[in-house]
């Protein structure tokens, strides 16, 4: 194996693991209250939105779009998930729905 590449991988591993482990190390067993408590509870829902919504409206070419296979498959999967709340089935349905819309649109 190439030494430079090993060094690069190690550098990446250190900074990435650092970002993941530092809060555990610093704030373990500390009580959070008030603002911080509601902040950390809102992070998942905010991240969910930030991961999903831009995929529907921003294309790979970085322009706004209101009609594309991602949005159409997204709406279908959303409706399907409301009827059938099964993680695995919904993912399967979503993949098929996207595949269809990608063929058509």
């Amino acid at each position: 194996m190439n030494h430079d590449i090993i060094l690069i991988i190690l550098a990446m591993a250190v900074v990435t693991y650092g970002a993941r482990a530092l809060p555990f190390l610093l704030f373990r067993n500390k009580n959070m209250g008030g603002f911080l408590k509601s902040f950390v509870e809102l992070v998942p829902v905010a991240l969910l939105a930030a991961l999903v919504i831009p995929e529907f409206f921003v294309t790979a070419e970085n322009s706004l779009s209101f009609f594309n296979p991602f949005l159409l498959a997204g709406i279908s999967t959303f409706l399907f998930a409301r009827k059938i709340p099964n993680l695995f089935l919904c993912v399967l349905f979503g993949m098929l729905a996207y595949w269809c819309f990608d063929k058509i649109v």
Partner: peptide, 26 residues
């Protein structure tokens, strides 16, 4: 679309009336 589908299912079970404004804002 697999990961996006996963996120959408989680959206259905995570987003409630009280955190909907945060979801929309984010």
């Amino acid at each position: 679309f697999a990961l996006l589908a996963l996120f959408i299912v989680l959206t259905v079970s995570t987003v409630k009336k009280d955190n909907l404004p945060v979801y929309i804002l984010a």
